[in-house]
Design a protein around this nucleic acid. Structure first.
Lengths: 118, 118
DNA sequence: CAGTATCCTGATAGATACTG
DNA sequence: CAGTATCTATCAGGATACTG
């Protein structure tokens, strides 16, 4: 039931939310899954540099926090798909302004497009 | 000029923004400074558990990233005030939805109030 | 008051090899 | 394919003492 790594120890909402997305690759995982459901191997390829161990543990934590859903298909070869839960979708939406801020003030003035970006 | 700890290495805006606020106490510092400018000792008291070393290094990084302004008053005893820059204010505003998400979905249904919270 | 200077530790992540 | 199991490395953060 408890979400995050330090249940009940948060000072405020941002502190709590930060804990859920703390992890070197977590926001990138959320970004990738925002488009569509992905298999483990796909995610690994979408996140150049991540190791299997770290990707797996991040996915386990996001799953435990109710952010991503893990669907196992009983096939051979095995197929597992990760997707955002509704909570994950809402988290992504809550992250959008932060992404806009970073894109505008850190990445510099890239071309302005109308559709949602990170 | 470059902002963040890994200039030019960001995949997207959120990745970049996360880097700026990565640090155990940074969002709490931003939260505190959102109200008003604070002295070093005030911040230390507002963040129970932070050590002087960590608080100082976080403030240096936030200053280097253009998020907080450090104003030194040439007095005895010494007085230094930290405040948000306009970029810091914008960052805080971009963090507001994330704070709302965390407050609503992690901290649980606390009493709803109309003014801005974390 | 507002910090530095050292030293130290623990959590997180990377490397690599192996498995159902 | 989708992971687990070990081992190692790094480094952010903490403890403590000291200073302009």
């Amino acid at each position: 039931m408890a979400i995050g790594r330090r249940p009940g120890a948060y000072e405020c909402g941002i502190d709590a939310a930060m804990d859920v997305i703390a992890g070197k690759w977590k926001v990138l995982i959320l970004w990738a899954l925002n488009e569509r459901a992905c298999r483990f191997g796909e995610l690994r390829r979408l996140l150049p540099g991540v190791t299997e161990k770290v990707l797996a543990s991040h996915l386990r934590e996001l799953e435990a926090d109710g952010i991503v859903h893990r669907e196992v298909y009983d096939e051979v070869p095995p197929r597992v798909e990760y997707s955002l839960t509704s909570l994950g979708v809402m988290l992504n939406e809550a992250l959008a302004p932060l992404g806009a801020w970073g894109r505008e003030h850190i990445l510099g003035n890239m071309e302005k497009v109308s559709h949602v970006q990170r």
